[in-house]
Amino acid sequence: MSAPARGAEAGPDAPGRERTAQRLLASSAKLSFDPLKDVDWQSPPVPGRYYAPPHHLSLYGTELWDTLGEEQRIELSKHEVASIAAVGIWFEEILMQMLLRHAFDRDPTTAHVQYALTEIADECRHSVMFARMISWMGVPAYRPNALAHNLGRIFKATSTHSQTFGGTMYVEEILDAFQREVMNDESLQPLTRQVSRIHVIEESRHISYAREELLRERLGPVRRRWEQLFVGLIVYVATVSLVNPRLYAAVGIDPAAGRRAAAANPHWRATKVRLAAKVIGVLDRAGLVGRTNRWLLRAAGVLA
């Protein structure tokens, strides 16, 4: 009998991996979207409608919020959605490279690798969709700061299995929780609801793939602490990058003052805790929440 290909799926987890991938490939074939055709990019924004629920905005409930008129609040919602979308593109670009590294060492004839490649194709379309939405809004593509951007450059090239799928779980789950509320709120802009719906449907498969991979990994006590630290850094950098302080200038607020107000805002912190609750629970089950990184999760504002 010939030896298996380098990186071929083997061991007790292989049948489970293949069953999961086959199910996800079947779902992808049945329900996938082309955002260039399935989003109505020709429709203009509807006057008077928010781009995200007001209670999800970083300044909601603060004294600065009270100084804003209704048009300024709607404008703030537009810029915050654009900032979140730009961070989504940034992380999806990182994720695509991590998935390529994951596939590179494995047997391409397996369903497991073929689903990884299918997910990369999904993420390419999502990045284009988010970029088109930012252009449709007519606002800047707010990118993470230079430190976060260069940490991402290192992370995409060096991440371990737990860091790859733990980071993926965190970013995808927190965006999923946010976008589920957007897509179900009929008072919001129709186009942001369309984009959210497409992303939620397709990301549900990505989340299943990442969650099962994450929970399969067996970590010893020393390795677990190392992985906790790096996953904590990923959570911190991704979370603080969601709302770029530069966007506050669009509604006449000094960016430094806006950043301080958001950081001190108990409502914004409670919102982040609620959006992240499900994924923090999954990371905990995987052994990736502990005393090594709880301080980072609290600093990110996602742990009560």
Rank of each mutant, 00 (worst) to 15 (best):
L99G: 10
R291Y: 04
G301S: 06
N145M: 01
L57D: 05
R17A: 07
I198Y: 01
R132F: 00
C124I: 00
I280L: 15
S27F: 01
A3K: 14
N293V: 05
A270L: 12
A26D: 03
A261L: 09
W41E: 04
A14Q: 02
R246Y: 03
E203C: 07
R17V: 01
A299K: 11
D107L: 11
R246E: 12
A238P: 00
T292A: 15
L214M: 04
R19I: 04
T62W: 02
N244P: 00
M129C: 01
G7H: 08
I84A: 15
V81R: 15
F165H: 10
A276R: 13
R298F: 03
E80R: 12
Q97H: 14
A304I: 00
A177E: 12
V243A: 13
R223Y: 05
Q189C: 13
L64A: 07
R180T: 06
P266A: 14
F230G: 07
H161Q: 12
R73I: 05
Y60R: 13
P53Q: 15
Q72F: 10
D254K: 14
P190K: 11
G152N: 05
S241L: 11
L57F: 08
E181I: 05
F104R: 15
K37W: 04
A263W: 09
Q163L: 12
I280F: 10
Y236G: 06
A264N: 13
G7W: 04
D254E: 15
R294H: 05
I84L: 15
M129T: 00
A177G: 10
E92K: 11
V113K: 04
T109C: 11
P108M: 11
A86Q: 14
N265C: 11
S77K: 13
A146E: 05
P245R: 13
D38L: 06
C124A: 08
P140Y: 02
H112G: 04
